[in-house]
Design a protein around this nucleic acid. Structure first.
Lengths: 136, 136
DNA sequence: CCATTTGTTATATATATGATGTATCAAATA
DNA sequence: TATTTGATACATCATATATATAACAAATGG
């Protein structure tokens, strides 16, 4: 995962980290069982404090995207039985409302929708055997 | 526009107001040329400070959703020539990434997508003649 | 056993943001 | 002229963000 943070950006650093991990999971860059870098290591990479990374990982854990343990570290956890679709639908509703309110053409919205989902269509039964090393 | 705020919610009050206005525009509850309530009036309705409402209106103005003037107040402004699709696409990308990362089935995502857009399909040439009064 | 690596927790501090309070200004209107 | 409206300029307080330092606990590897 190559990541880059926008210091002094409009979004909190821990939120940016969280978002990039979610995007990486959706894109298939991070897969079930993959390890995220240790918090201190990732913090050093970004030049930020490890507490900030810790907060991001904790948020990802709360949302069910990863699991944390003492010595297996942060592990991607995709297969969740029941996701709370409720909150997600509200987010989708707002994003689409913005498009409609901005007057973006329906065709353009559809095109963007399909393009993004196509990008996230990583077939499970492709390439590389299960990773063994850390820092996927 | 019937609105309700979640005091002590996870989202800032001004952001909640902004979101509800955007949703109302998309749903057709607010239409081009409609007036939003004066900031002091809406603030009193919610039991919050008028500065907070002012911040919400200013944000909506910056985003191009409304226009502000001394005595015509806050007016909905839908017809924008070129919307900056760039930022919006990133939002859509993140929302869809969350769905994929959560493991929500593609069919369910499609269903939600269509349902929301159907809700926002308010045909322009229907009902009620152009509003004249304020506080749409 | 011991040192290292890992997440976890506890304080503390500094800065930024969110929300309110009070006051005033400026333009449009009745 | 008085009222209504958004626009601004202060201020205060609470919360959120980010950093800093320290220590703890479990697991691993020598």
């Amino acid at each position: 995962m190559r990541m880059e943070l926008d210091l002094g950006g409009e979004q909190p650093l821990y939120q940016q980290i969280r978002d990039q991990v979610v995007l990486a999971i959706a894109a298939g860059t991070l897969r079930e069982g993959d390890n995220l870098p240790p918090i201190r290591e990732l913090a050093a990479e970004f030049g930020i404090h490890f507490h900030t990374v810790n907060k991001a990982y904790d948020l990802l854990r709360q949302e069910g995207f990863i699991r944390l343990s003492r010595k297996s570290g942060a592990v991607v956890h995709t297969s969740r039985s029941e996701a709370d679709t409720e909150a997600w639908q509200h987010k989708l509703r707002l994003v689409l409302a913005e498009a409609v309110a901005k007057g973006i053409a329906r065709a353009q919205v559809d095109a963007a929708y399909r393009a993004v989902l196509a990008e996230f269509e990583h077939r499970s039964s492709e390439d590389a055997p299960p990773q063994s090393g850390r820092h996927a």
